[in-house]
Design a protein around this nucleic acid. Structure first.
Length: 473
DNA sequence: CTATGGCACGGATT
DNA sequence: AATCCGTGCCATAG
């Protein structure tokens, strides 16, 4: 899903000849990869010393003065302040360059730094135990995880690609599975559960039947068919339900999901998110009623430009090299142009988006206003696919510190789901889906009963019956 | 008989 | 053109 190049394992597409290099759909980390590659093998491109804001130390990318420290805005104006910056503490720690080594201690470990993305987080843990020749394999596996932390490709596929035995792949995969978040890299939720159980059993005693319940009754388990499950295992339905509860509180079928800040009841220990944001959203001077400050993060520190020396040299170069150099020059200028374009589009998009969704940003999921990418495109006057590209794969850090995918700004079911959650949290007796549907209707949301059920399960809320039988805390 | 989950269809969105 | 999402119908569990 996120084609992060940890190593040069996957074929590099350096040979994009198109005039419309699409940088828009790249995340900050991917962009870094592209720019660094270009800097390394294109002498026409030059990285200048960063321009730093004296006040706050930000590295400014395309503006002369920092719009924040340049305090000349009128306090009654709530227009969001949007600009592109480059902050060292948010730069991606993944470097795609071939010189980069993967030693675990080389990565900065200060606690102000945000978390890494999932792939490098895992890599960092296993790097020490990983043989040199296995690195490409690990990288391949880690780049093939879906957002739940499950493996999307088959072992056979990986094995063929690297011309290695299945066993050697499994060895690496096993290493991955046993690192945090435990079970990551499994190819099914079932497998993930088993791995977690295995790890858990080394420190704590695990109740009987749990393993066999997962192994043989996974489908019954997920459907909450406790009676049948009981029969299968030769225990009572109630015991079966207890096992189910044990599993849902101690294990997680989607290893990385808990880290995405979804529903989490305090039993877990790691409320962490493994992604660098591409965008930072904050309050000006920490005033929650002031304008919002939006920083679009740029992955390299300084401004880029065409090397003037290079341009000069080209005139008295040997004729055979002229052609190549000319190409370099064009490529570099194209890259710069596209980067400008990208920054521009992102800025415009974010300006409108944050203005429109201000309540969502400051007051939470319930206050998201529905909007589609298509209508955003119309407002911006760009093609809808442009908006799609700008949004896809990117993440933003909200003022409350939470990192969310940009796509969430367009999730029209989110406010309803949040409301359902509130309703259920406040309920006295367990409400059925149709009762919830009625309440929602009074709140102005017209959704079918069936849909309530869907949202409920998305939020990980059990059915009315099962909630009823649970002990209230 | 009621509440819920599965499957699948159609329309909207990307 | 492909994918996502809401919904209706039906089977099944309680």
């Amino acid at each position: 899903m996120y084609p992060i190049h940890l190593l040069e394992t996957k074929p590099q597409t350096t040979a994009h000849l198109a005039q419309t290099m699409s940088l828009l759909n790249m995340t900050s980390a991917e962009l870094k990869q592209t720019i660094e590659a270009e800097l390394a093998n294109n002498p026409a491109l030059e990285l200048l010393e960063p321009r730093r804001c004296r006040g706050c130390g930000r590295f400014l990318v395309d503006s002369k003065s920092c719009p924040i420290c340049n305090q000349l805005h009128d306090p009654s104006n709530l227009e969001p302040i949007v600009f592109t910056s480059s902050r060292s503490d948010y730069q991606s720690t993944i470097s795609g360059g071939s010189t980069h080594s993967l030693s675990p201690d080389e990565l900065p470990d200060d606690n102000t730094a945000p978390a890494l993305d999932l792939a490098s987080f895992v890599l960092r843990q296993i790097a020490a135990d990983l043989a040199e020749e296995d690195r490409p394999i690990a990288a391949h596996i880690l780049t093939s995880l879906d957002k739940d932390g499950l493996l999307t490709v088959s072992l056979l596929e990986i094995s063929r690609y690297h011309h290695k035995s299945i066993e050697s792949i499994e060895k690496v995969l096993n290493l991955i599975k046993h690192s945090e978040p435990v079970g990551v890299g499994s190819s099914s939720p079932q497998e993930a559960l088993l791995v977690q159980l295995d790890v858990l059993s080394k420190t704590k005693a695990v109740p009987d039947h749990v393993e066999i319940a997962i192994r043989e009754g996974i489908d019954l388990l997920s459907r909450h068919h406790f009676t049948k499950l009981g029969q299968k295992l030769g225990i009572s339905a109630q015991e079966a339900e207890e096992i189910s509860r044990y599993i849902s509180t101690n294990l997680n079928p989607y290893p990385s999901r808990s880290y995405w800040g979804s529903v989490r009841q305090g039993s877990e220990t790691t409320p962490q998110v493994y992604h660098h944001p591409d965008i930072l959203i904050g309050h000006l001077n920490k005033k929650t009623d002031g304008p919002l400050v939006i920083e679009i993060l740029f992955p390299v520190r300084g401004p880029l430009r065409l090397n003037p020396l290079f341009r000069k040299e080209i005139k008295n170069a040997q004729s055979e090299k002229v052609e190549k150099w000319q190409r370099d020059l064009e490529k570099a200028s194209l890259l710069i142009k596209c980067l400008r374009q990208r920054n521009n589009t992102m800025r415009q998009l974010l300006a409108i988006l944050t203005k429109y969704q201000r309540n969502f940003i400051t007051h939470g999921d319930r206050y998201l206003k529905p909007i589609t990418r298509a209508s955003m495109a119309k407002i911006l006057g760009v093609h809808e696919s442009t908006v799609s590209r700008a949004v896809s794969g990117k993440t933003a850090r909200l003022p409350n510190g939470r990192i969310i995918p940009l796509g969430k700004f367009f999730d029209r079911s989110l406010p309803i789901r949040a409301l359902i959650r509130e309703i259920v949290d406040d309920e006295i007796d367990a409400l059925t889906d149709s009762q919830i549907a009625v309440i929602l209707e009074n709140e102005g949301y017209n959704v079918a009963r069936r849909t309530v059920a869907k949202y409920r399960s998305m939020e990980g809320i059990l059915s009315a019956r099962t909630r009823q039988s649970m002990v209230k805390i």
